[in-house]
């Protein structure tokens, strides 16, 4: 019985980690959109390229935060297994 409940918790943690990483979709779409807009801006004003690039990188890094949060949740679920202690 002990073995079975442990297995169920481990399986749940693995599935949860997989579901958490679906959040990687959001930053991907958002960053691609930001990079596309930056390309448009550079096309319109090539002389402002360095300014646009540094602003774009900062914005991309900020919007990456949600993806990083989901990655950390997935990492905790797989590596640390905090739910095993709740048995």
């Amino acid at each position: 019985m002990e073995e079975l409940s442990r297995a169920i918790v481990l399986a749940g943690s693995a599935i949860g980690a997989g579901i958490a990483m679906i959040a990687g979709l959001g930053p991907g779409i958002g960053e691609g959109f930001a990079a596309g807009k930056a390309l448009e801006a550079i096309g319109r004003q090539p002389e402002a390229k360095s300014d646009i690039t540094s602003t774009m990188i900062l914005g991309i890094a900020l919007s990456e935060t949600t993806g990083i949060y989901s990655f950390i949740i997935a990492l905790l679920l797989v590596m640390v297994n905090p739910l095993i202690g709740r048995l």
Partner: peptide, 15 residues
């Protein structure tokens, strides 16, 4: 969020 961002990027690269 500052710490998580830096740690998450480096750690995800390692993994």
């Amino acid at each position: 969020s500052m710490a998580f961002r830096h740690f998450g990027n480096i750690a995800s690269g390692m993994i």
